[in-house]
Simulated assay, not measured.
Amino acid sequence: MAQPHASAGQIIDAQPLGARLVDEKTVALFKAQDLEVMRLVLQAGKALPPHQVAGEITIHCIEGVLDVTLGGRSHVLRAGQMLFLTGGALHGVTAMEDASALVTIALKR
């Protein structure tokens, strides 16, 4: 069963998953007309292949370590760090350790 998206005014728990990290999956937290926020969960060694989206993106590492490739360069994100990507930027994400992140996408129509 799909997890429902949060409604306007609803509190969303975005704390580190801790010991639950190994059992969790990536989920969309909410999607509005111009904005989508998801919790990305990747176990060590797992990756999202290079891809691009039309809108701007932020990747805020909550826990673990992520390697974001962008423009042929590696950007290592640790807990508490955030990376901004322009719309259309080709990027990939690899978990160097079990990790979770908040990913915000500005939706372009």
Rank of each mutant, 00 (worst) to 15 (best):
M1F: 07
A2W: 02
Q3W: 05
Q3G: 10
P4T: 09
H5S: 07
H5V: 02
H5Y: 09
H5A: 05
H5K: 09
A6Y: 02
A6W: 00
A6Q: 03
S7E: 15
A8I: 14
A8Q: 14
A8F: 14
A8K: 14
G9S: 07
G9H: 08
I11S: 13
I12E: 10
D13N: 14
A14N: 03
Q15W: 04
P16N: 07
P16R: 10
P16K: 06
P16T: 08
L17H: 05
L17D: 03
L17R: 06
A19R: 10
R20Q: 11
D23G: 03
D23S: 04
K25R: 13
T26K: 00
V27I: 12
V27S: 05
V27G: 01
L29F: 07
F30I: 00
F30P: 06
F30T: 05
K31W: 00
K31G: 01
A32Y: 02
Q33D: 15
D34H: 15
D34R: 14
L35N: 04
V37I: 11
V37Q: 11
V37W: 05
M38E: 03
M38Q: 13
R39H: 08
R39W: 06
R39E: 04
R39M: 05
L40T: 02
L40D: 01
V41I: 07
L42H: 01
Q43H: 06
Q43R: 12
A44R: 15
K46T: 12
K46W: 05
A47E: 13
A47W: 01
A47K: 12
L48A: 10
P49D: 03
P50N: 12
P50V: 11
H51S: 03
H51P: 00
V53K: 09
V53A: 11
A54C: 09
G55E: 03
E56T: 12
E56I: 00
E56A: 15
I57A: 02
I57D: 05
T58E: 06
T58Y: 11
T58F: 05
I59N: 08
I59G: 00
H60E: 10
C61A: 12
I62N: 08
I62D: 06
I62M: 10
I62H: 01
E63Y: 07
E63Q: 12
E63L: 01
G64L: 04
V65W: 01
V65A: 14
L66A: 01
L66D: 04
L66Y: 00
D67N: 14
D67P: 03
T69G: 06
L70Y: 00
L70Q: 12
R73C: 08
S74I: 04
S74A: 13
V76P: 00
V76Q: 11
L77P: 04
L77I: 04
R78F: 08
G80P: 03
G80Q: 09
G80I: 06
G80Y: 05
Q81G: 09
L83W: 07
T86A: 13
T86R: 14
T86V: 08
G88A: 09
G88I: 12
G88K: 12
G88N: 13
A89V: 08
L90H: 15
L90W: 15
H91C: 03
V93H: 04
V93D: 03
V93Y: 07
V93S: 03
T94N: 11
A95F: 08
A95R: 09
M96A: 14
M96H: 10
E97R: 09
D98E: 10
V103W: 04
V103T: 08
V103G: 07
T104K: 13
I105H: 04
A106K: 13
K108M: 13
